[in-house]
């Protein structure tokens, strides 16, 4: 039986992942610019992977090192897109 705290964590991650995926997908379709919103799309997929790892109790430090490191990479991607912004 999964501890309640872990279950809550999984639920919060899934809600965020699904919410973000939904919002990003709509924006992708509306703007027809898939590349622009790609970091958020991958981020939401990444959240799903985190939820799955939590759900199956995978707490291997090496796996989580990779998972956590990619958070920085996705944010860096978002930052690079914003840095290209001319409206500053």
């Amino acid at each position: 039986m999964m501890p309640l705290a872990n279950l809550l964590a999984v639920i919060i991650i899934i809600i965020t992942a699904v919410g973000l995926l939904w919002a990003v997908s709509i924006e992708m379709l509306k703007s027809k610019n898939i590349r622009l919103f790609m970091p958020f799309f991958i981020l939401s997929i990444w959240l799903c992977i985190s939820a799955a790892l939590n759900f199956y109790g995978v707490y291997d430090p090496q796996i989580w090192f990779v998972v956590e490191s990619f958070w920085g990479i996705w944010f860096l991607w978002i930052l690079i897109i914003l840095l290209k912004n001319k409206n500053v």
């Binding site: 956590e68 914003l82 500053v88």
Partner: peptide, 22 residues
């Protein structure tokens, strides 16, 4: 465990400071 979080913090701080320019 700290390195991924520190890395993400640096990127987010850059994003935060860059946000002032918008």
């Amino acid at each position: 465990n700290d390195i991924p979080d520190l890395f993400a913090t640096v990127i987010l701080l850059i994003l935060f400071f860059h946000g002032f320019k918008f």
